[in-house]
Write a protein that binds this DNA or RNA. Structure first.
Length: 252
DNA sequence: GCAAAATGTCAAG
DNA sequence: TTGACCTTTTGCA
């Protein structure tokens, strides 16, 4: 399930299958029938991931925009897929996405414009995010989830990067002094996530048991791995936040 | 076997 | 802030 690392991994896996190929596109489930007809038979030119968004660019200024949301999946589950892409040798099926639509270049630009820097893009830097954070009274735990501040970070990386920086989620952005460290850490963690196709932040050795993969995420009530204090949880930005009240105590 | 939750977003009120 | 949407997994009977 998808935070930014999943999307970048999909792009990496799909490139050798689709780029340079003429692609047969259909909508067995019917909901994307018109879009599929528009794209069907075109050659895929490139695949571009950005944050949690994924674009398959085709000849003729049209692209397929996919956002997996919470449940979307390529090549999993049963029943008729929303979208099917086939070449001579590959078959990809998309089920349960939040977004599956045809974009023009202008549509794609409009989405990109609303997104903050993506830690997984080599040329992005954290400066734009740093400025937003430094100006804001909003809690850092909320800012990290805002895709216009930072693209690709979701609920797991939020909890884990805050813990690794020993940063309280409740500190207002303008008072945060750990941003540079968190940006660098996100780059490393998310790259690792692309390699593993999975989020592991504890440095646990493979094979990593599920209960050893995270410091605090989904560990409410369990002992903090560092200090033993029970991990706490509370809804922030509409999602369950997890943190250690001792290691991530607010300053002062 | 079913209810609830889940790595997400948007639009309505 | 809430509800809607989409699907799979988890936890409790």
């Amino acid at each position: 399930m998808p935070e930014g690392h999943t999307i970048h991994r999909l792009a990496r896996d799909h490139r050798p299958l689709l780029v340079g190929q003429q692609v047969r596109i259909t909508s067995p489930q019917g909901k994307f029938a018109a879009g599929a007809a528009l794209l069907d038979g075109r050659t895929c030119l490139r695949i571009e991931p950005y944050g949690k968004h994924l674009w398959y660019l085709f000849e003729g200024d049209l692209s397929l925009h996919v956002h997996l949301g919470l449940y979307g999946k390529w090549n999993g589950g049963g029943g008729p897929p929303r979208l099917s892409m086939t070449t001579g040798s590959a078959r990809l099926e998309l089920r349960g996405p939040t977004a599956c639509e045809v974009h023009t270049t202008a549509d794609r630009r409009a989405v990109l414009q609303r997104l903050g820097p993506d830690p997984l893009r080599r040329t992005d830097d954290g400066h734009r995010a740093a400025e937003r954070i430094a100006r804001s009274r909003t809690a850092i735990g909320q800012l990290l989830m805002d895709q216009s501040v930072l693209a690709g970070v979701g609920n797991v990386y939020r909890a884990e990067v805050l813990f690794r920086a020993r940063q309280s989620p409740f500190t207002p952005g303008r008072d945060v002094t750990t941003w540079d460290a968190m940006w660098l850490d996100l780059r490393a963690l998310m790259r690792q996530g692309v390699r593993d196709n999975r989020i592991v932040t504890t440095g646990a050795r493979r094979p990593v048991r599920r209960e050893d993969a995270h410091w605090v995420y989904r560990r409410a009530g369990e002992a903090c791995r560092v200090c033993g204090t029970p991990v706490r949880t509370e809804v922030m930005a509409g999602r369950n936040l997890f943190w250690c009240p001792t290691d991530q105590a607010p300053d002062g």
